[in-house]
Write a protein that binds this DNA or RNA. Structure first.
Lengths: 148, 148
DNA sequence: CATTCATGTAACAATTAAAGTAACATCAAA
DNA sequence: TTTGATGTTACTTTAATTGTTACATGAATG
């Protein structure tokens, strides 16, 4: 498959809603920033709403964060938009009559869960507030160095 | 795309070569355990060889681990077989004229690198020796409980 | 209250990375 | 020299993501 950008685009949407709260917040306007299309934006917004991160209203282009940016972590967003939240995948078609093929699936499941857990612990430390702050800092740095 | 099983199959191959060292170690025999095909096995073995984890000889079905299983980590295997070693992917097509679209790529790259690093630290702690030991332990548990 | 424009959602097509298949050059071993 | 192995490439098939289109539903304005 193609590599998923859902997490990146979901962060983009949330950051956009927070930073550009005075601008047009329609799915079309957000899609222009993501360089994607309104349907994709609405799909992701639906997932974020079901994940308790976003409040939307049908018919009205007035999405709002459901929590403070400091109370939204990258892990929250990840779990909201990624159907398959697994970073690594066990091959579930191995020969059960072989010592290796018959046991490796359970062995790898445990190992992969440890890796997944380590990644999620880190994702939990990264808040939307930090990401928004970083975006704004980078923008200021650009302004400050303009025309040098 | 489909989810990659390359890491799982590569671990399978290495564990098979160590555990079944007295059996047929042809790519066809290994493919039967993986329930895949010989070409896939040979492709992965080629990557493992280039990664310095496996010693093979063209024309002879005598692959050998290039290091002790205790000196091979899940991270070594991951890096050997995954062309794109990134667990998360930045959307590299965002509107550069927007505050968010113009800065979020760099912002996410940093954040994703932290997550990647946390996962890799954990992968580094998981050795092939441990995975092999786990497979053998599970097999013994099956034998002990046979017919219960 | 009708028009306009928004979201919410689903169905379908297009894209792309992985896995399957086949072919063949090269090398080992009997 | 014959047989069978690996190493490698090209091509096909599969499947998850993204793009596209359509339309039901709700909000807002005159």
């Amino acid at each position: 498959m193609r590599y998923s950008h859902k997490l990146s685009d979901a962060v983009h949407i949330l950051a956009y809603i927070d930073i550009c709260h005075d601008d047009d917040l329609s799915s079309t306007a957000i899609a222009a920033s993501v360089e994607s299309n309104p349907a994709l934006v609405r799909r992701l917004m639906g997932a974020l709403r079901r994940g308790g991160l976003l409040a939307t209203q049908q018919g009205s282009a007035t999405p709002k964060l459901a929590r403070r940016p400091a109370a939204i972590t990258l892990l929250d967003i990840y779990r909201a938009v990624e159907d398959d939240g697994n970073l690594l995948h066990v091959d579930d078609k191995t020969n059960p009559h072989c010592i290796v093929g018959g046991n490796i699936q359970d062995t790898l499941r445990v190992a992969y869960a440890e890796v997944q857990s380590a990644a999620e612990v880190q994702m939990k430390t990264i808040t939307l507030a930090r990401l928004i702050g970083d975006i704004l800092t980078r923008e200021r740095a650009k302004q400050g160095s303009a025309g040098e």
